[in-house]
Every structure is written in C-alpha cells, then in structure tokens.
Design a protein around this nucleic acid. Sequence first.
DNA 1: GCCGGGCAGGTTGTCGACAATCGTACAAGC
DNA 2: GCTTGTACGATTGTCGACAACCTGCCCGGC
Lengths: 234, 234
Amino acid sequence: MTGSSPEIRMGDLEPIDRRSTAAIVADRIRAAIMRGTFPPGTQLGEVELAARLGVSRGPLREAMQRLVAEGLLRSERHRGLFVRDLDAADVRDVYTARTAVERAAALLLLAEPDRGPAVARLTAAITAMEAAAAAGDAVALADADHDFHAELVAASGSPRLHRMSRTLLVETRMCLAALQQTAPPSEDLLAEHRTLRDALATGDAELMTRVLEAHMADAVNRILDVATPPALPA
Amino acid sequence: MTGSSPEIRMGDLEPIDRRSTAAIVADRIRAAIMRGTFPPGTQLGEVELAARLGVSRGPLREAMQRLVAEGLLRSERHRGLFVRDLDAADVRDVYTARTAVERAAALLLLAEPDRGPAVARLTAAITAMEAAAAAGDAVALADADHDFHAELVAASGSPRLHRMSRTLLVETRMCLAALQQTAPPSEDLLAEHRTLRDALATGDAELMTRVLEAHMADAVNRILDVATPPALPA
DNA sequence: GCCGGGCAGGTTGTCGACAATCGTACAAGC
DNA sequence: GCTTGTACGATTGTCGACAACCTGCCCGGC
C-alpha cells in the first residue's frame, strides 16, 4: 500500500540536520577511548587532536568539556587533558551505578505489557555473544555484551537512564580494555544473560533483580581478581 | 591548639587552583536555571550571556556544552540555546531516575558500619526543613529538601551516583519552579524524610526502600496533580 | 656537592573577527 | 486570497592568533 512515489511517504525521509561538530567529535573521542586507542593516562594534546580530526580547537574543546563532565577525561589546568585511569574503587563504583541504572530500567520494562520487541533485541545480542564466544573473538564478545545492556536500558524508554547508561558502559569498556581480559569465562556469562532475558520475558521481577545483581557482582570479581592476583594467593 | 602562624599549618591552606572559567560559568548558569531565573523555554543568547558574565564566547560555549550534555539545555543548530521545558513524562522520568540513584546510594550507605555522620547531616537538613515549613518559606523548604537528598547520595561515597544525582536534583528544581508550587503539604513531606533518616539510622533496608519509593511516587503525584487539575474533576 | 634563579619549551586559556545558516517580513505573481 | 520568491537581520559555528601559565632543565653561586 505504500506508494512508490517519493512525495507520498514524507514521514521517514527527514533528518538531514547533522549534529554539531562538537557532538561528532565527542562521539569520536569517546569511541576511541572505549576501543582502547587511548590508554588510560594518555595525554591528549588539543592541537594534535584538532589537526587529526580536521577541526579547530574551539569545537574540540567543547567536545572535551562534555567528556570531562562525563568523567572520561581528567583536566588539569595548564597541564593538559588525560584519559582517566580507573582503579579498583572505580570499577566497583561503575558497577554499583550500573546495577542501579539497569535494575531500574529492567523494572520499568517489566511494567510494560508488550515486551516482545525488547526480548527479541536482547535475544539478538545473546546470539551475537554466542557467535563471538564460539569464534573466540574477545572484542566481538565485549561488543555484544555492551549491546545487550545498552538495549536493555534503551528498551526501558527512560531518556535519563539511557544517558547515564551510555557513560557507564563506556567506562565499563575502559575497565575491560585496561585489564586486557584474555580468557573470559564465557559460559557463565552467556548463562547469566540468557537468564536475564528469560526473566524479562516471563515477567519474573524477583528473579531478574537477583540475577542482575549477581551478574554485576560477578563482573566486578572477575575484573578485580584478574587485576590483583598477588593479593591472596591462598 | 591551632597555631596562629600561617606557616605552621600547611595542611589546610590547600589548592589555589581555581577551576576553569567554563566550570564556573556552568555552575552559575545551572544555579540560575535551578532558581528559576531562566524559565523553561527561554532562549539564552551567547553574546548577551558572555557580556553579562564578563567572559568571552569561548568559555561560555564550553560551559553550555556541559549543560546540554546534562540535559538542562536544548541546542538547535543555528537557532540558539533554550532552557528545556519538562513535561509530565519528564517529571516521571526524573523521579524514576532519582529513585534508582537514591535507592542505590541508600543501600550503599547501609552497608557502611558507621552511619553516624550521615544521619547527623540528614537530621540537620530535616531541621532546616522544619524551620522553613514553620516560616512558610517555600524556597527555603525546597532548598532543605534538595540538601537532604544531596547529602544522602553524597554520603554513599559513590562519585558516579553523586554526579548523576546532581543533575537530577537540578531538574527536580526545574519541575518545582515551573509549576510554582504554592502550598506544599509539608506535614507528609517532613514525616517521609524523618522516616527515611530513621530507617537509615536503624539499618532497616526494607523499610528504607519502601519509604523512598513511596516518597518519590508521592512527589510525582503532587507535581502532576497540581499541573493538570482539569483532567478528572469528578 | 647542593641550592636558588633564570630560561626555554610547550601547553592551555582567552579573545576578537569572519563566514555560514536560519527565521522572519515583505513584496510579487497566480 | 494564497502561494512563492527574495532580502534582511540576527544568531550560531568556526577559525586563527595572542597571552598566561606550568614544567623541566641548565647555569651560576655558595
């Protein structure tokens, strides 16, 4: 029934309004930090970055302000901008905040009558995780894990939870990239994600919150155990 | 016992590194928005603001980027910056996010053995609320309410929850300022805050979460009922 | 050998000006 | 009367350059 003439369907050809340069630059730098291109502690020179991105220092500084506000960068007056390095306390804090945000998002999602699309997206993310795990691709596994949690929060329909989650997930990737996780126990990881999805599908709030909190606690232990093996060898 | 000589006590004459002007400007604008100086929908011209604050457009734009990232301002390309106006969905979303953040903060606080200082600060905030309620000062009451929740999250010791809470509390003030709440039912309000403090003092997690969620839900209803009286007059 | 002053290098912080873009008002045409 | 085209005003987006600042190193003096 949809007309093939372009002027009939005008509803979905709209957004030519490109975002501001600062927003684009911020996304680019954020992605680079997330990928590990800029390891924690790296100093980011403004002139070099501006030249590499092909913009002036003005928009670049605006983008940097956003990243500093998000907590990804640390600014020292007349010294420079540095990629924040996260210690053990930061790892715990990131996962504490993530637990709070994702728990709220999941409960919000459970209140909706039709959770079919959300469950489908989560299932897709799990499928991607399984493929990555089978292929032994740690980066793809982390990507799929990232997508799973991003979709979970996005499906809640809360703009603020979504905004918070975005920053927290980037920090999560920073933790993982910094620790160079080599052999993730993907079996437990996959099982936990499947349980989360099933709990959402069936509407079991109690199970969902319990598994979610356990999932986050497991992640913290996994990261910190790898990071500090000489702590308690007993 | 504190020496009167300035060079004796060097421990607390601390960092003179004033923050960047962009941060100062951002705080100033944020406070102005919170106070209601700039009502929602107001367009903020860069040249006028820069002239009024005595800074150039560069630092001001950097500050604006932070506020846009926080969701307090809305930026339209080549149009200008506007103070975001919050609708009913935004009010619900703000309180949803606040519930998530403050619940997590409270649970974190409950895990600490010594909650004395935190309880003391919350009690001080409640005292301020009582004084404001007795004096009929709605602004002071809102300030004290703000302080109570800010202290609650700050006492948790989580930098990320604290950062999120700061933005959310500003948005809360925007909701209240926009709706010009004239006669707040301060009795229930005070009782809820006292119960929250007591639950934290005694370590009753179940009571705390229940009262907190009820407190947030009450606030939403209070705001939306006042905002939309002609909905159901029956 | 040790300490203080001074200098150079590089970085950020700030400013003013130019160019691109958008909204609006007005006039012309159908 | 309604639509269309155009000119104007105002605002933002961007750029380059100057000034202030901090750090580290070198040198002279003790």
